[in-house]
Design a protein around this nucleic acid. Structure first.
Lengths: 201, 201
DNA sequence: ACATTTGCTGACCATTTGGTTAAACTGTTT
DNA sequence: AAACAGTTTAACCAAATGGTCAGCAAATGT
């Protein structure tokens, strides 16, 4: 915002804002330029094309989301503590960036090959460790028998969906934005309880 | 597909297909015309504009999804049976229409006022009945104390998210399309178990 | 058989949009 | 102060895109 921020940075910030709520095809280069308060040509000066600019934004967004998900797979914490922590941290973070999950999943659905590209380039930990952790916990009788995959899906679903489905949920629940925020606030702890309740013996 | 299907119908089918995986702004009228194998002008003959055509597709899609969600709110079944049925029916249906949830939520996020419009026009049952059902069940000691809103969010999250998040999940889980389909198949019953496990005393 | 409505198409148009280019401006080096 | 490199802008451009329109074709009515 200040005069000090470089043009390149201003562009990225503006592009983030526009792409995140209009998507790749809905965004206009002119609109991004206006948002950044610079000339449209400057966009092409720093990023050669719309596609390139978009990729910069997308990768940056994905690299914000994916480390959080990775903590589930790679942290050494106890499974229950892991769930509690993730739920709290993820929801806290997403309340501040509510468009992020929608943006990422949207473009991922439109362009599924992105995933393989991004996941193979970044060091995604893989399921092995998490699978072992669940298998161990089941064997030791700490939790009920559940597949690591399904548990993983459930954890993500319960945490991510409220942000993607917000407009739908607000409609069906007949809640105002404020009331919905309260619901989200409560989920920071309730979701973990819900999951743990379901897997503990 | 056959010669018998009217042009109007062919257009709607083609538009559905294109809009569902490119979104409003990503779809091209020419592309829809090609898909329907008719002249582009005919699109404007039956539907005056891209916007109108899109709205026809969107409403049709929303009217496919919303009755399913309504069953949670309005059916008279026992809460557990309701969850079991919904989980099975919804997932079965979505496996055949995997783009639907993503399409609807995408456009709803871009255009949140759609919800109020659609929900007020259609007879959405409202939360009252469901809230009472939960309150009753809690009082009778059938289930643990949980807010109807949170339970509702959780049910939708666990059922809808796997379809919206499919590319992301496939990436992290390192599963092929086939393996992922198996996971979805298992969810038809496992999700209900998961939820019920979590709310029962 | 003729007229009239209805369905359908090719050619065309105005605007939008991503992208280019040459020139101007700014700060730094010589 | 002149030369130079990096940054920014206005003016343009070609292609794409949503939309129109006059007319053809095929039913439908009389």
């Amino acid at each position: 915002m200040s005069k000090e921020t470089s043009a390149e940075e201003k562009i990225l910030t503006a592009a983030r804002r526009i792409f995140e709520n209009k998507g790749m095809s809905g965004a206009r280069m002119q609109e991004i330029a206006d948002e950044a308060k610079i000339n449209k040509s400057l966009l092409h000066y720093y990023y050669r094309s719309k596609q390139k600019l978009f990729e910069a934004v997308f990768k940056s967004a994905f690299n914000t989301l994916s480390p959080q998900i990775n903590t589930i797979l790679s942290s050494d914490k106890d499974i229950c503590e892991k769930i509690t922590d993730f739920t709290y941290n993820y929801t806290s973070f997403m309340v501040k960036h509510p468009y992020l999950p929608n943006f990422i999943l949207q473009e991922l659905n439109r362009n599924p090959e992105f995933v393989t590209e991004l996941i193979s380039s970044k060091n995604i930990p893989g399921m092995k460790k998490f699978k072992n952790q669940i298998k161990e916990a089941v064997k030791k009788g700490k939790i009920k028998d559940i597949s690591a995959e399904q548990l993983f899906i459930n954890i993500l679903a319960l945490n991510i969906f409220p942000f993607i489905g917000a407009p739908l949920l607000k409609g069906f629940l007949e809640t105002s934005d404020k009331e919905f925020k309260v619901l989200l606030e409560n989920r920071k702890t309730e979701v973990a309880d819900f999951i743990i309740q379901s897997i503990k013996l």
